[in-house]
Design a protein around this nucleic acid. Structure first.
Length: 401
RNA sequence: CGGAGUAUAGCGCAGUCUGGUAGCGUACCAUGUUCGGAACGUGGGGGUCGCAGGUUCGAAUCCUGCUACUCCGACCA
């Protein structure tokens, strides 16, 4: 699942014009002294020494490193805009890690860092990431709501958190109910065009976390029957922070007028190791997980109800090959468990479709398809099973819309 | 760091109050009957009761001190 989540993020980042790279996990303390954050950052920063007794740290975030890379390699405004991202492990020595990987000290994050000549250009980049995030969560099957956010220790004046509603969420959230139904920008959205109508639309309705909520404003702007007060999981955040690091670290380019100017930056994070538990929170029932197709570990669970029985084995092996050849991810359960155990296990691990093959069906030339999400079942002829599954699965991948 | 709880078989738990050398479910092994929603019978293996010390004829159980984990608060993707 983690890899599928990562692939979706990469595709949508690339589509929005960001470029993938990889930064180190261990960073020199001197860079952080330059930005002033070495002392500003609290005990959450894990500080270590190398063999030369130099102060190092396990990166809690990467603004300093990327700004250093930028200042050493970019000289002219003609090289802008630039938006670089990486997917890398980070470490924050949390006071209290909890909820499995929801809040762990070591976690995998996608971070994009943008560099623009001025604030107007930086805002355009911010909008690209905003739209890209809407698409990214949608493709994973999640409804993520952008909410006004505090800018925190990173600083800056434009920031949104993306929140997935879940009863077990860490923070209270308040929003207009229509936020949950908004249309997602399509695959052919023009990232070079004017994105402000989309962003304006998505930020026109009230949505805020408990840290930012203004109850009077909420009650004034949102009709009573549209008020949603719930709990949510933060799955991403976008910041514009201007010249905060470029000034501290001297990241300048020569502008069109021949003068040196500090670049305007933003950063855009998605916590991959948090997305996975958020998905499980969003998609489960009393029997187990119900993965959306786009992030499921497998798309089909092929259940051989009587493995070892010649005709069942033959049919299953043929279907397994057909599905694989058709580009479908299949998990083949050919264990010697009883039928009931196989059903329950498939439900538990949440594969979106079960293709059920038993002696009864083989005799009558039929297979059964169970939709994990809805519980719906359908009978299909054995010859048509692979094609039927392919038709069910491909639109659910959400990779073409 | 403050508050609360837990630690006994691979996993989930009971037993601790009232001390007598450990049990249930599940999983595992063998075997027979089952075979489309986690089947049933019979037989079997598996535990220094978190660690260290103390009380006692005898400690999973009582006392003291540790350690680890979980939950609540402060931190945050």
């Amino acid at each position: 699942m983690l890899r599928k989540v990562q692939a979706i993020i990469e595709e949508e980042q690339n589509r929005a014009g960001a470029i993938e790279m990889l930064m180190p996990t261990i960073q020199p303390a001197d860079l952080w002294r330059e930005s002033g954050r070495y002392d500003a950052y609290g005990r959450e920063m894990l500080r270590i020494k190398d063999r030369h007794d130099r102060d190092m740290l396990f990166g809690p975030t990467n603004e300093e490193v990327i700004t250093d890379i930028f200042r050493k390699s970019v000289r002219s405004y003609k090289q802008l805009p630039l938006n670089l991202y990486h997917i890398q492990w980070k470490f924050r020595d949390e006071i209290r890690p909890r909820f499995g990987t929801m809040r762990s000290r070591e976690f995998l994050m996608k971070d994009a860092y943008s560099f623009d000549l001025n604030k107007q250009e930086a805002r355009r980049t911010y909008y690209k990431m905003f739209v890209s995030y809407l698409r990214t969560y949608f493709r994973m099957g999640l409804t993520a709501i952008p909410m006004k956010a505090e800018t925190g220790p990173i600083g800056g004046d434009l920031s949104h958190e993306f929140i997935v509603l879940a009863d077990t969420g860490e923070s209270g959230v308040f929003c207009h109910a229509d936020m949950l139904e908004k249309a997602i920008p399509p695959i052919d959205v023009d990232y070079e065009g004017d994105l402000s109508p989309i962003v304006d639309d998505w930020t026109s309705l009230y949505a805020a976390t408990e840290d930012m909520i203004d109850m009077e404003e909420f009650e004034r702007d949102v009709p009573q029957d549209k008020r949603v007060a719930a709990r949510g999981i933060e799955v991403g955040q976008v910041f514009y922070f201007g010249t905060k690091y470029s000034e501290a670290l001297n990241a300048q380019v020569t502008g069109p007028d021949g003068k040196e100017v500090a670049v305007h930056s933003g950063s855009y994070g998605i916590g991959l190791t948090r997305i996975v538990p958020a998905l499980i929170e969003a998609f489960h029932d009393e029997d187990g997980i119900k993965w959306p197709v786009s992030v499921a570990p497998f798309e089909v669970a092929l259940l051989n109800l009587k493995s070892g029985e010649g005709s069942c084995d033959d049919v299953c092996e043929s279907l397994y090959a057909q599905l694989n050849n058709g580009g479908i991810d299949v998990l083949y359960d050919d264990t010697s468990e009883g039928a009931g155990a196989k059903f329950s296990t498939a439900d538990l691990i949440g594969i979106p479709f079960q293709l059920i093959i038993g002696p009864r069906g083989v005799k009558s030339g039929e297979a059964e398809i169970k939709h994990r999400r809805t519980g719906e079942r359908e009978s299909v002829p054995l010859e048509g099973a692979a094609a039927r599954l392919s038709a069910l699965i491909k639109p659910e991948r959400r990779d073409k819309i």
